[in-house]
Amino acid sequence: MNPVQAVGRSTLGLLRTAGSVAIFAGRGVAASVSTPWFGGQMARQVVSIGYLSLPVVGLTAVFTGAALALNIYTGGGRFNAEQIMPQIVALGITRELGPVLAALMLAGRVSAAIAAEIGAMRATEQIDALHTLSTDPFRYLVAPRLIAAVLTLPLLTAVADTIGVAGGFLVATQTLGFSGPLYVQNTWNFLTSWDIQSGLIKAAVFGFIVALMGAYHGYNASGGARGVGRATTHAVVSAAILVFAADYILTSIFTAK
């Protein structure tokens, strides 16, 4: 195959996948905004995606906040700007690291789990069984996961923001000699509500991406156990890449404001 053919074929494949994902997302959104809803499924997913992700998101946030504080303190020291550290930590966590890290943790934990679960259901004909039981798989499987992820990732991000800033606070007050009350005051006075809101909006978008990628790859899994494994890998990788791409696009929009 000549190089032009190869590029053409890859481009067509990419466009086909993009179209397929867009149609899947459209069906998922349509199922999410219209009745009937499966309340029990949704509650189960809120617990699985949101509540059970708290430890991993919290731990990631505290260590990231602490490491960020050390780096900014050291970097700021090069031009005698160590005192700006609390503000930069708060800004970095709320606008960028909180939502992105929470989303990446969810991509690893949740997107993989969704892909594996739905993929296994596909392999064992459970999705076909849903059809024969007069139940739309998009309403029963996809919509609850999309809704749960869109609702819970902003909440997880709010927790990550708080814990991340607390991680910076701990390092600053325990090892770098910052005054506790002053640190809190500097952080509080510096942050605007938009800093937090923009991070939470990002988180909702990332939540949608993470659940969508898991559901899409699981739903379209084929080839038995190997296919489910492949779907899981694709879900995590594509979710992570799309989170970064969406992060850049949203940041561009928000900073142009």
């Binding site: 296994a120 459970q126 069984a129 039981l133 739309d136």
Partner: peptide, 22 residues
Amino acid sequence: SAERARHNARFGMLFQGAALFD
């Protein structure tokens, strides 16, 4: 989808591996 649901309600199916929801 309402027509589809009404249509599917006429069917029952026993799958090869039973396809029970885990």
